[in-house]
């Protein structure tokens, strides 16, 4: 039985959630712990924290956040952003993250994936792939989609899995922020070539987009930010939409 996962993504900077949220009743919409706990009780299947903290001396605040989340939130969570060496992964996993997501540093040096996988297991390593459509294919972009690499995204997905990535987080840079839906061709090209779970990201504007991601892109999990943060849709609505299209999901827990 394949059970699709619904994953809200939180961008954090210096231990605070950026791109605010408007959950009703949150005391502090910028508090990642409170927000994570809220998503936990709302039935989110996992959480992804993307750390966009630029300065390295503020990264300790991220570790504090991870520790705090781990002591109050009892669903799996991934932390990504700025992981350049095994030590970075070790710190985050030691602080309580279940998985780490690598991106730029892994493209520059794919052995980073195998090193983390060797120490902590494949299941701990998510490879984030930011891809942009170029001609008939897709190319990897780094630094939040600004820097082209000339590397084919599908080839890279397979390389990352060979190196031990236990999961792929595939973001369409063409769709990210547009609300136009996932790039299903990209996702299908990757899911048909790898045997690890794939999370689709980038472009969700409606509940139908989540359904389409599973049905047309063949992905195992769907990630979204704004539709959840801005209260456009709840986790429960997302799951009901998936369920209504014959996609098995974990039901949202009853309130309380």
């Amino acid at each position: 039985m394949k059970v699709a996962r619904v994953i809200p993504c939180l961008d954090v900077d210096g231990g605070r959630v950026v791109k605010g949220t408007n959950f009703v009743g949150l005391r502090d919409a910028g508090d990642p712990v409170e927000l994570a706990a809220r998503y936990d009780s709302a039935g989110a299947d996992e959480l992804v924290f993307l750390d966009i903290t630029a300065s390295s001396d503020r990264r300790d605040t991220t570790l504090d956040m991870v520790r705090e989340v781990a002591s109050r939130v009892f669903i799996p969570f991934t932390v990504g952003g700025g992981i350049r060496q095994v030590d970075d992964a070790r710190s985050l996993l030691g602080a309580g993250a279940d998985k780490v997501s690598v991106n730029t540093a892994a493209v520059e040096r794919p052995e980073l994936i195998s090193e983390i996988a060797a120490e902590f297991g494949d299941q701990c390593v998510v490879c984030a792939i930011d891809a942009r459509r170029v001609g008939t294919g897709w190319e990897i972009y780094l630094h939040g989609g600004r820097t082209p690499t000339g590397i084919d995204a599908i080839e890279w997905a397979m390389t990352a899995v060979e190196h031990g990535a236990g999961e792929l987080l595939v973001t369409s840079m063409d769709r990210d922020g547009t609300g136009d839906g996932f790039d299903h061709d990209l996702n299908a090209a990757i899911t048909s070539r790898v045997n690890v779970p794939v999370i689709a990201s980038g472009g969700v504007g409606t509940l139908q987009h989540l359904v389409d991601g599973i049905v047309h892109g063949g992905v195992d999990a769907v990630l979204a930010a704004s539709i959840f943060h801005f209260g456009t849709h709840s986790i429960d609505e997302a799951k009901q939409a998936l369920n209504a299209h014959g996609i098995t999901v974990r039901p949202t827990p009853p309130p309380g």
Partner: peptide
Amino acid sequence: VKRPQMQWNR
């Protein structure tokens, strides 16, 4: 089946 099984199950 995909390996790992990385999901919720009943």
